[in-house]
Amino acid sequence: MYSIVPFEEHHQPTIEALMIEIQEEFDLPFRNPNSVSVSEYVESGNFFWVAIHEDQIVGTIGLSCFDSETGVLRNMFVAKEHRGGQTTVAKSLLDMALDQAKDLGYTNVYLGTMDQFKAAQRFYSKNKFVQIPKTDLPETMSFNPVDTLFYVLRNEKE
């Protein structure tokens, strides 16, 4: 059983450890050396959640505001042993962020990822995100400089 909860300051060290653990799985670095800590990110009016299983953080996701109708998903990570079809961690995290985006009235939610994250690409496509060229991103939108692939989920206003 997993619970998705809003970020709290005491989560920061465990999130850092999770990011290092995931980074070690891949040949290419994916962490932005200029990124701010989650606590700084949240203080800036953004949202961040963690997935907890047996008192351990096993996943993260953030949602930042680009403008009044546009959000950006950030830092979606799930520990290796909690990925895949047998768990619901990634889907639960994504649903939490997308529900918040809907509550805020966002009609577009963007994300960036890297070519090496094949399973993530399949997951985003399965969840109705559409891959777009970088040139289709809003001009001043910032992403991790190592992101090579970009996606958008377009929602209709009710």
Score class of each variant (00 low, 15 high):
148 T>I: 02
22 I>Q: 09
74 R>P: 00
29 P>C: 01
85 G>Y: 13
50 V>Y: 02
99 D>C: 08
114 M>D: 07
13 P>K: 12
75 N>C: 06
95 D>F: 04
23 Q>P: 11
115 D>C: 11
24 E>L: 13
139 E>H: 12
12 Q>G: 06
157 K>P: 00
5 V>S: 05
39 S>H: 13
137 L>C: 11
69 E>T: 08
25 E>C: 15
57 I>W: 04
154 R>W: 00
23 Q>V: 04
116 Q>K: 12
115 D>F: 14
158 E>K: 03
122 R>E: 10
21 E>Y: 14
127 N>G: 09
2 Y>P: 00
57 I>T: 03
137 L>M: 14
155 N>G: 00
31 R>F: 04
104 L>R: 14
135 T>Q: 15
25 E>Q: 15
41 Y>D: 01
39 S>Y: 14
146 V>T: 06
144 N>V: 03
65 C>T: 13
22 I>L: 10
115 D>Q: 15
86 Q>C: 05
98 L>Q: 04
47 F>H: 06
151 Y>P: 01
60 T>C: 13
144 N>Q: 05
152 V>H: 01
65 C>Y: 06
89 V>D: 02
76 M>W: 09
13 P>G: 07
141 M>G: 05
81 E>T: 10
104 L>M: 13
6 P>Q: 07
26 F>T: 03
131 Q>I: 15
148 T>L: 04
40 E>K: 15
102 K>L: 06
157 K>C: 00
69 E>L: 11
